[in-house]
Design a protein around this nucleic acid. Structure first.
Length: 408
DNA sequence: TATCCACTGGAATATGTGGTCG
DNA sequence: CGACCACATATTCCAGTGGATA
């Protein structure tokens, strides 16, 4: 039933997200600067706080992991240095409180974990200082995707100042903050900005050339010789460069192209496979963002689909809201108020699932928005099919109605 | 050029859930 | 148990917006 048939890939892991190259490419300047910021650690001084920013997939995390693993390795050569590195992704940690709780749990044993709510924030900080101090070492905390922390950012100045404030005696702590969003910096509490942004390193997007270099080197490891048609690497690089300049995106594109070629039993990865991969990845991305939404977000989306089928689009909020009310009535849910519904529409717009147009008809119309689906309706259907809802949704029926109306 | 429409989006407040602690 | 904590999500209220129109 299973048979090993490998005509395309040699080692596809090389293209995966978690692959750690033994060399960081096309980031020489950033690497140098980063290295000099970390140097004090090896001399036994307090780790500096570093703030890294740049779009997704431009090497922030990869460079960090690369340098820190070297730092860890090299620090072992010196007896007087004891280094602890804690890496933490803040994707699900939207407040200082949660970050602190997770740090404490990271340092504590399994049977001693702290719950995510219940304690006053100050109690959590006290636990954190105790845990830090009991390490009696230099500590570097990496907070990746730090921009997810919204509202209270006290942890970002509490940690760096812990020692000066007398909360820590035996340990020295430094923070490395990684952000996708430069605006995050402006939103910081001035105290946090002061301490966290001591050293700043900007990672610019890769251009098509740099991407091409990265891809060709990786593809030599990943693919069998001569399986990439000419132009494949160029196209992957060009697509990614014109989008966000993300190496992640370019690598995903290349990997997915290879998968598609393999599935289709082709011996050569061609430009057409890349085109297919591009569509597939886009679809997966949307599905992923849809999956994480709340029930009311889903209901809002379905209401928009109904409006798309039954009404003139783009449609304004009140029209979609009426659809929503009857939908909610049908499935017996409690309806939201219109203000909350408005927020869900905004949320979907933010994700790129909906498009929004501002209109202003002046004295007898005022300002309002019109919404429509931001992607082909069929993509929404197939995404909806793959999601488990807490209510009954007959996607096939919707699809039939759309077909009947000639929208598909 | 002042007005005014009908909406937008911020802010304060409320509700509900899941937790600690004495 | 009751007081208290953090947090997500809703509701309520309303000042602000900006271009067509008188």
């Amino acid at each position: 039933m299973f048979e090993r048939k490998q005509t395309i890939f040699d080692n596809e892991d090389v293209l995966h997200d978690d692959y750690r190259p033994d060399k960081i490419e096309e980031r020489d300047e950033e690497l140098e600067m980063y290295k000099s910021c970390l140097l004090p650690v090896i001399n036994g001084n307090q780790p500096r706080n570093i703030f890294l920013y740049g779009k997704t997939g431009v090497g922030k995390t990869a460079t960090t992991k690369y340098l820190l693993s070297h730092l860890e390795e090299d620090s072992k050569k010196y007896d007087d240095i004891d280094l602890n590195i804690i890496y933490m992704n803040c994707e699900d940690l939207t407040s200082s409180y949660r970050v602190a709780v997770n740090l404490v749990n990271e340092l504590r044993s399994v049977e001693n974990q702290v719950s995510e709510t219940g304690y006053p924030l100050s109690a959590i900080y006290t636990m954190l200082w105790q845990e830090f101090d009991s390490l009696e070492s230099q500590i570097i905390i990496v907070l990746d995707e730090i921009d997810y922390i919204s509202g209270d950012d006290s942890i970002l100045y509490q940690i760096p100042r812990a020692r000066t404030n007398g909360n820590l005696e035996k340990s020295r702590v430094g923070i490395i903050g990684i952000s996708n969003d430069f605006k995050f910096r402006e939103m910081l509490d001035p105290r946090a900005e002061d301490t966290l942004c001591e050293r700043e390193i900007h990672f610019p997007p890769y251009d098509a050339n740099e991407l091409q270099n990265i891809l060709s080197r990786r593809s030599k490891l990943a693919f069998k010789p001569d399986v990439l048609a000419s132009g494949v690497i160029g196209l992957c690089s060009a697509i990614a460069a014109s989008d966000k300049g993300s190496a992640r995106q370019a690598l995903d594109l290349l990997l997915e192209s290879g998968h598609i070629a393999r599935r289709q039993n082709d011996e050569l990865v061609t430009i057409s496979h890349v085109e297919q991969a591009k569509l597939l990845l886009r679809k997966q991305q949307v599905e992923k963002s849809l999956r994480d939404l709340t029930v009311n977000d889903h209901l809002t989306l379905v209401s928009m689909v109904l409006a798309e089928i039954d009404e003139n689009v783009p449609a304004r909020r009140s029209v979609i809201f009426k659809k929503y009310l009857s939908l909610v009535g049908d499935i017996g849910n409690e309806a939201l108020g219109e203000r909350a519904f408005h927020n869900h529409l905004s949320e979907l717009t933010m994700l790129g699932v909906l498009d929004r147009y501002e209109r202003n008809e002046g004295r007898n119309g005022g300002i309002y928005y019109q919404y429509e689906l931001g992607m082909p309706i069929e993509s929404v259907f197939s995404a909806l099919e793959d999601i488990h809802f807490s209510f009954d949704l007959d996607v096939e029926n919707l699809r039939d109605r759309a077909r009947y109306k000639g929208i598909i």
